[in-house]
Design a protein around this nucleic acid. Structure first.
Lengths: 204, 204
DNA sequence: GTCTATATGATGATAGAC
DNA sequence: GTCTATCATCATATAGAC
């Protein structure tokens, strides 16, 4: 019965993470002070150290939990089928997931250099794991002849770069809706890995 | 005859720019101090202010001069021909240019948020101008039927994102050489914008 | 669990000697 | 043209009151 202490017990930690995520994404890790984060949460700077040992751990935790959630979300979303089906699912999943979490991807791709070496290695491994999910799909498609890809590792990097780009310009309520953007990116990706003839006929 | 002063007159300025470029790219604008830049050049921190009014101007100058050089280099490289020829030239130019200047592109794409609003607007315009060069090529190709692109503005963004990605992983002396990388990216880009049939025959 | 107060050092930028 | 010295401010992180 007696719930311990108050209705807001245990929410300061998440609030700190949310504020740090937003501020790091907006201004960059190095440009954000612990005082700013504390100010957003509504506590004093010193109070942050009850929830995180230091600023670096805050960044590291944000990045690893993002990558772990991304990986398990994709593993849950990957429903199998042909390589082409799975590639479509991957592309649409990736775009949707990141458009819903623009701050996360901003940090995950721009704050790598602010991680201390040991932390960087951990995050790098998680990033490789995600990329490998895509490589595996591309390998399967190359094996069964649906894809024509000289180097699946490179193609995976290129595809992820292209899909990530959407978060740098997409704005809710803009010229194109989410579904349209998703469909157009998927169409470009589909064609880019597909077997198709040279376009010599068009070179006048 | 009398050359004014010494053999190193006038080179401190460029040395400061070089050091700032390298350090900003490696650690980020906010994480780099004026003392670090001065240390790299071999002068004291105070001496930097003979060459730049402040740190922000240093970043702004690096970004604008990079974008202006990029634009004029492309305009000189664009030798015309069919839209497909020009797109190939663009892709290969973009990759080569940026692999030669990894620090520049790092700054140009990651330090936008550290620009003050007025400076940001200027750099944004230069970036738009570059993107528009590509849009124009895509429009021409769509008009003559060589490309099948639902939205050329979006396709240009996607293409540039994809091509930019190369700078995040390419290392000299790695598994793939520059020419191979260039060729593979161009092939993916070529296919992604080309008219090609649905791959229904391959599903299942 | 949050506060105030503080230790300790780095920061961007300036002034003035040489 | 570069130096030393300095200003005022900010940083991360800690100690101890309540």
């Amino acid at each position: 019965m007696a719930r311990k202490q108050g209705s807001h017990a245990g929410i300061t930690g998440p609030k700190i993470r949310d504020a740090a995520l937003r501020l790091f994404a907006r201004h960059g890790y190095a440009a954000v002070s612990m005082r700013q984060i504390a100010g957003e949460v509504g506590v004093q700077a010193g109070a942050l150290y009850l929830y995180t040992p230091d600023k670096q751990s805050l960044l590291f935790d944000l990045m690893t939990s993002h990558m772990e959630e991304l990986l398990s979300a994709w593993d849950a979303a990957d429903s199998g089928g042909t390589p082409c089906d799975r590639l479509e699912a991957f592309a649409r999943f990736h775009i949707r997931y990141h458009l819903d979490r623009p701050d996360n991807i901003f940090i995950a791709y721009m704050e790598l250099r602010n991680l201390e070496p040991e932390n960087f290695a951990v995050v790098e491994d998680l990033r490789d794991a995600y990329e490998s999910r895509l490589v595996e799909i591309l390998d399967a498609g190359r094996a069964d002849g649906s894809f024509d890809i000289p180097d699946t590792r490179l193609a995976a990097k290129a595809a992820i770069s292209m899909l990530n780009g959407v978060t740098t310009w997409y704005r809710e309520g803009g010229r194109l809706g989410r579904d349209q953007v998703e469909a157009i990116y998927w169409d470009m990706l589909r064609k880019s890995v597909s077997a198709m003839p040279e376009t010599e006929a068009l070179d006048r």
